[in-house]
């Protein structure tokens, strides 16, 4: 079971959350071209390793939070609010990989 540290509620079980997908994609401005919108909807990195993603604390504070999680080990490195700039451990130059 993932234990997700909600910035508002503290550490809670995965069962309280609903996964909401890759948090690295940003909705383009309304006047962006078709290719940009196509990539926003369909292009995904799908990494085997660290992944920045949205989780909705649906049975808690109902905030959307960002989570840096490893898709191979299910380890969670960090969490934050929607505006936080989270970094993957392998991009920090740290020892985790």
């Amino acid at each position: 079971m993932h234990q997700i540290d909600c910035p508002w509620c503290g550490t809670r079980d995965e069962a309280e959350f609903q996964y909401q997908g890759d948090a690295t994609v940003q909705r383009p401005k309304p006047d962006a071209d078709e290719e940009t919108f196509f990539r926003y909807v369909y292009a995904r990195e799908n990494p085997k390793g660290w992944h920045v993603e949205w989780w909705h604390h649906v049975a808690g504070c109902r905030q959307w939070i960002k989570v840096v999680r490893n898709t191979l080990t299910h380890e969670i490195d960090s969490t934050g609010g929607p505006q936080s700039k989270l970094t993957k451990p392998d991009e920090k130059g740290g020892t985790k990989s």
């Binding site: 079971m1 993932h2 995965e14 799908n46 993603e53 999680r69 898709t71 299910h74």
Partner: peptide
């Protein structure tokens, strides 16, 4: 399970 994973094992929820 509902989240991206390559773990080949599932979770309890």
């Amino acid at each position: 399970d509902g989240y991206n994973s390559y773990a080949q094992r599932g979770n309890l929820p």
